[in-house]
């Protein structure tokens, strides 16, 4: 131990303001970078989950694809348009494959 007491340690032999100013800012930077990286990761995951919720899942994308094209093959332009309008109106709905159909 290079110091006799805690007060001695804090005083840093009269250089307290320099030592603590340099150390304080450095440790603060390390802490800020760590917290930033943590929040950044959480945000990236949250944005990604929100994005994926809006697009059909892998299972959804594969299964209905074939049935949709078969079922909708004989429909006319008019019915396609009304279904497009309907899907715009209830755009908040989570099942997304009718949004991508038209």
């Amino acid at each position: 131990m290079a110091f006799d007491s805690l007060a001695d340690f804090i005083a840093m032999g009269g250089h307290a303001r320099y030592v603590w100013a340099a150390w304080g800012v450095t440790l603060l930077m390390l802490l800020a970078l760590t917290l930033f990286a943590w929040f950044e990761q959480r945000l990236a995951l949250r944005v990604l989950r929100r994005h994926l919720r809006r697009t059909p899942t892998l299972a959804e994308r594969q299964v209905p694809k074939a049935s949709v094209t078969l079922a909708q093959a004989p429909t006319t332009q008019a019915t396609l348009q009304t279904s497009a309008q309907a899907s715009i109106q209830d755009g908040s709905q989570d099942s997304t494959h009718n949004r991508s159909a038209p």
Partner: peptide, 27 residues
């Protein structure tokens, strides 16, 4: 940090201000 701030001996010329080296050099 504990080693450099509390246990390393003070510099005979610079006194305790030399302890800044432990954050200055790594950065």
């Amino acid at each position: 940090s504990v080693w450099g701030l509390a246990f390393a001996p003070a510099d005979y010329q610079q006194g305790n201000s030399f302890r800044i080296i432990y954050v200055h050099v790594p950065t």
